[in-house]
C-alpha cells in the first residue's frame, strides 16, 4: 500500500526548513498566544488608569521598572508582529499578495519591520 516506505519524515526541527511565509505564520500564532496572556494585564491597567489621579500616575512609574520593561518590550513585539502579520493575512484573504514572490516579500517585510520595532523599543527603553 505504501509507495514510499522510507519517505523522510522531517520531524527534527533542525532539519525542517520552514519557508519565510511559514515563519510569519507560526510567529503570528506565538504572538497571538502571548497577547492572549496580556489581556488580563491590559484590563487591569485600564482599570487602574481610571481609578484615581494617583493610580494613573503610578502606572508611569511602574512601567519604568526593569522587570516590567522586559514584559512591555516582549508584548510590544508580539503586538507589532501580530498586527503587521494580521494585516498581511487580511490582504491575502482579499487576494492581494497571493503569488509566491509578493507573499515571500511581504513575509520578510513583516518579520523585519517587527524586528526593527523591537530593536527601536529596546534602545528607547533601555539605553
Amino acid at each position: 500500500m505504501l509507495q514510499h516506505p522510507h519517505r523522510p519524515k522531517f520531524l527534527n526541527l533542525l532539519k525542517i526548513h520552514l519557508p519565510v511565509t511559514g515563519i510569519v505564520s507560526i510567529l503570528h500564532r506565538v504572538a497571538g498566544a502571548l497577547l492572549f496572556l496580556a489581556v488580563p494585564g491590559l484590563i487591569y491597567l485600564f482599570n487602574v488608569s481610571l481609578d484615581s489621579a494617583a493610580s494613573f500616575h503610578a502606572i508611569g512609574a511602574w512601567l519604568s521598572t526593569p522587570g516590567t520593561k522586559i514584559i512591555v518590550t516582549l508584548f510590544a513585539w508580539a503586538l507589532l508582529h501580530h498586527l503587521l502579520g494580521g494585516i498581511r493575512f487580511l490582504l491575502t484573504d482579499i487576494g492581494i499578495g497571493m503569488e509566491l514572490r509578493p507573499a515571500r516579500a511581504s513575509a520578510w517585510l513583516v518579520n523585519i519591520l517587527s524586528g526593527l520595532g523591537f530593536v527601536v523599543l529596546v534602545v528607547e527603553l533601555w539605553l
Partner: peptide, 8 residues
C-alpha cells in the same frame, strides 16, 4: 482571542 485559542 477565543477563536485564536480554539485554533491552537
Amino acid at each position: 482571542a477565543w477563536i485564536g485559542i480554539r485554533d491552537i
